[in-house]
Design a protein around this nucleic acid. Structure first.
Ligand SMILES: [Mn+2]
Ligand SMILES: [Mn+2]
Ligand SMILES: [Mn+2]
Ligand SMILES: [Mn+2]
Lengths: 155, 155
DNA sequence: AAAAGAATGTAGCTATGGCTACATTGATGC
DNA sequence: GCATCAATGTAGCCATAGCTACATTCTTTT
């Protein structure tokens, strides 16, 4: 198809910028989820250890989380700053009221995610691994959908 | 119940350390997932933009990902170092073969996760947000389970 | 061709979260 | 009681990933 030479044409070397930026919100939420992830996992681990052996020590948390005791120390300092735990040198770590609420909500959500994956036929070991990461990105709506699917299956 | 005063008792101030450390593997995998997350999201975004407007520019990626152009610049340098993209100053960013493979696999997984959540009745907007974070923690086994559940629903 | 403006790049800051190496403290065993 | 060893703490390193402020380059407009 030949161009009419007399017809003026806008020469645009620079490509037009895409207008849509709706996706940005999704990434922002993911980053926000990651920001609370450490608090949630530590709170859960501290609650578990406290239930199991009466207290949560730095060395227990390090083993459980697969990091060194140094990393645990620094993280606990941040969690104390943020009102999730109390801690004193050479003492066990304890959850604050806020920390207990975080632990309880996280544990519930975590267990539902594991149960849901298992109900789909995912092997237990794999379900536990996937759930450890997925849990922090499961919104209340999605959690409700998981619960509903589990209930439907048991009906 | 009264204690027999003659019975010797081991006084253990220090609580016995918990032996189980199986959970550590789950956290390690989550950290590993997070390490590849940036490459996957950037590769997907670059592939999308290249399809949509012929090229991926720094400013487009910044808008899409909800970060400043500075963050994009630094990330692109790392991705180039890691063989995911090629880039030259003031030029568009292109995927390498490796980058295209990452983009393709990520995009497929991402779409399946979104479709699966929607099939559970999660509202589209929420499904997209949750999927953006969850996708990186979905193992091949779980992905297969999602696919199977979707197929069953359409049967 | 020059000006203006958009895009890109760079300098330098912050926070999180990993690590090794070394110092200190506390609990256990003798 | 004291020595030993486990636990805890601290110093200082690294990488990732975010930011603001400012400099430079390229594209478009006039
Ligand atoms: Mn958890
Ligand atoms: Mn987790
Ligand atoms: Mn993502
Ligand atoms: Mn994640």
């Amino acid at each position: 198809m030949a161009m009419n030479a007399a017809m003026p044409r806008k020469v645009t070397t620079r490509k037009p910028r895409p207008t849509s930026v709706a996706e940005a919100e999704e990434f922002r939420q993911t980053r926000e989820d990651h920001a609370s992830e450490t608090a949630e996992d530590y709170a859960e681990a501290i609650a578990d250890l406290t239930d199991a052996v009466g207290e949560a020590r730095v060395v227990d948390l390090a083993k459980r989380l697969g990091v060194t005791h140094v990393t645990v120390n620094r993280t606990i300092a941040r969690l104390q700053r943020d009102g999730i735990v109390t801690s004193q040198p050479y003492r066990a770590i304890f959850l604050t009221d806020k920390g207990r609420r975080v632990a309880s909500a996280s544990k519930q959500r975590h267990e539902i995610v594991v149960a849901f994956l298992r109900s789909l036929g995912v092997p237990d070991h794999v379900a536990r691994i996937d759930a450890e990461g997925m849990e922090h990105h499961v919104s209340p709506e999605t959690l409700a959908a998981f619960k509903a699917a589990l209930a439907a299956r048991n009906r």
